[in-house]
């Protein structure tokens, strides 16, 4: 079948290359973890050693309870990485909840509905999702939202929900297609309305795909930078983690940066995602490839 795979030398070369790539993939993360346990002195004085000479947990404690000097407000208790983490959780949870609700409703209407204008609406949905230009149309959006005092974390979440990618819709519609129509026909004959069929039958049946959509949207909301940054501009106490970490880096610059706090903050932002990914990676992999390939 595969001759390179069959010959012994080929197999050794293959494994050597794969292991090299594993090292390349993991090294940036290992160094981040390592630096987050080193005192700033040890980071600044250099050295490529992975195991800290003066192992410390102080970076995490400082970042979590006292925050960075860049985040302190006047007359207000300093903004800490604990605040950033709570903000990230609020942002990502609201966005996830909104995304699964609206994705599931629209997927059901487009896949099972028979109302006038369905095809036209579907076409409008797809067209607009593809022309959404992202970061360069952010200004009119934030200007508009500030009229309703929504230029904050909650406003960012609303925008994230409605600028969701077409991939989520495709993914959910593809799954609904596999649920037999006989089921909703039977429900209808028993007197269920369109919405009742959705709520009682289709929604419970589509739980697996909604879990996948939830994972994908939680991850992207948690990782997002530009949108929450613009929406929380000047309100350090509303920063999510990613925005807080970048602000800390820009405050320090390259010279006198608090690398220890920067790396501890980075750990707060990446470790939850790595843990979720490692425990549920099958869903991520299936979801992200299927949605994009159908698109």
């Amino acid at each position: 079948m595969n001759r390179v795979g069959n010959s012994k030398i080929g197999l050794v070369v293959t494994y050597a290359f794969l292991i090299l790539m594993v090292i390349v993939t993991l090294i940036p993360l290992l160094y981040t973890a390592s630096a987050s346990f080193k005192p700033n002195q040890e980071i600044v004085s250099g050295g490529a050693h992975l195991i800290p000479k003066n192992f410390t947990l102080a970076n995490f404690v400082t970042a979590w309870t006292m925050g960075s000097s860049g985040g302190a407000g006047v007359g207000r208790k300093p903004v800490t990485f604990a605040d950033y983490t709570v903000n990230s959780l609020i942002l990502a949870s609201l966005t996830t909840l909104g995304t699964i609700t609206f994705t599931s409703l629209s997927a059901y209407c487009f896949q099972r509905g028979n109302f006038p204008g369905r095809k036209f609406l579907y076409w409008v949905f797809l067209a607009t999702m593809f022309i959404a230009a992202g970061s360069i149309t952010i200004f009119p959006i934030v200007q508009f939202m500030s009229k309703f005092k929504l230029n904050n974390l909650y406003g960012a979440s609303i925008v994230q929900i409605f600028s969701t990618s077409a991939a989520n819709l495709f993914l959910t519609m593809g799954y609904l297609k596999t649920i037999s129509r006989e089921i909703d026909e039977a429900a209808k004959i028993d007197g269920c309305s369109f919405f009742r069929t959705y709520y009682r039958i289709i929604l419970p049946l589509s739980k697996p795909i909604l879990a996948t959509v939830a994972l994908i949207s939680f991850r992207s909301a948690w990782n997002d930078y530009l949108l929450p940054m613009v929406f929380t501009l000047g309100k350090t106490y509303q920063y999510p983690l990613v925005v807080g970490v970048v602000a800390l880096k820009n405050f320090g610059g390259e010279g006198a940066a608090q690398y220890n706090l920067l790396m501890a903050g980075t750990m707060f932002s990446i470790v939850p995602i790595i843990v979720i990914y490692l425990s549920l990676n099958r869903f991520f992999i299936a979801g992200m490839t299927q949605g994009a390939l159908k698109g």
Binding site: V22, W222, V242, I273, Y277, L278, N281, M288
Partner: peptide
Amino acid sequence: SVFFMPSMLSVAVMGIV
């Protein structure tokens, strides 16, 4: 799983790393 992991992380944060 290992090779796909970087795609899961925040672009901005990895820029800083």
